[in-house]
């Protein structure tokens, strides 16, 4: 059983969660690649802020590590890696294709948010004494669903990578409320994992551009059953 937390900390975490969702929506619907990356960085900053707020409220030192690792890897390392691996694609102020218009995408996002909420709702009453779970867990699951939708929606490799990264943000946003005790080795491994994923996918994007002349993966459709 965890110690009770003040209403003000719950309000702060709730506000951060709202920002987290707005930035996620920004990644999903922004027309420009660079804007999408910036929304991702803002979202990772919101994740950092939530980890700091929870670390203070729950006196959980491990969450300070999570905040530090998140900020270092996602706000600093991932953009650097992407600039190195696929700089022209990300920083070239390009419009991004998507399979669905923005109003329809927002509508689907709203439906996915309902799905996420109803999936988590039965779990919440069982998390006695986990004060932030009711805020973070549904928000995290919704972001995982939105990230998956972004991967399906976008026809551009870098934008799909953003979708994968916001899914990861979502998984961590949901779990920091309930898991404060990942072992140090797991935290270090998770920290190394994200830049490696970004690096390898960035290099793959560079190869796709070199061979096909574009990073529009929506046009890669030669492989299928006849």
């Amino acid at each position: 059983m965890m110690a009770p937390v003040s209403a003000i900390m719950l309000s702060i975490d709730g506000s951060i969660a709202a920002l987290f969702v707005i930035f996620g929506l920004g990644v999903m619907v922004s027309r420009q690649m660079l804007a999408s990356l910036r929304f991702f960085m803002w979202q990772a900053s919101a994740l950092t802020a939530s980890a700091l707020a929870l670390a203070y409220a729950l006196q959980a030192v491990n969450l300070l590590w999570v905040a530090l690792i998140t900020f270092t890897t996602k706000v600093i390392a991932v953009p650097l890696v992407l600039r190195w691996a696929a700089g022209e694609e990300v920083y070239g102020r390009r419009e991004v294709d998507q399979a669905m218009g923005i109003p329809a995408s927002v509508l689907v996002a709203a439906l996915l948010a309902l799905v996420g909420w109803f999936a988590v709702a039965p779990v919440l009453p069982t998390l006695h004494g986990v004060p932030f779970a009711a805020i973070n867990l549904p928000t995290g699951l919704i972001m995982v669903l939105w990230g998956a939708f972004t991967v399906a929606l976008r026809r551009e490799s870098v934008a799909q990578l953003m979708g994968l990264l916001i899914m990861e943000n979502g998984a961590f946003f949901g779990s920091i409320a309930i898991v404060h005790n990942l072992t140090v080795i797991a935290e270090i491994a998770a920290a190394v994992d994200v830049p490696i994923v970004a690096l390898v996918i960035g290099l793959l994007i560079r190869s796709i551009r070199r061979v096909t002349g574009s990073t529009r993966v929506g046009t890669l459709d030669k492989l299928h059953e006849r």
């Binding site: 994968l164 061979v211 890669l220 030669k222």
Partner: peptide
């Protein structure tokens, strides 16, 4: 590269 991209995107998701 198309195969590798589909592999990475779907399994990472």
């Amino acid at each position: 590269l198309e195969a590798a991209w589909k592999y990475v995107a779907l399994t990472s998701m």
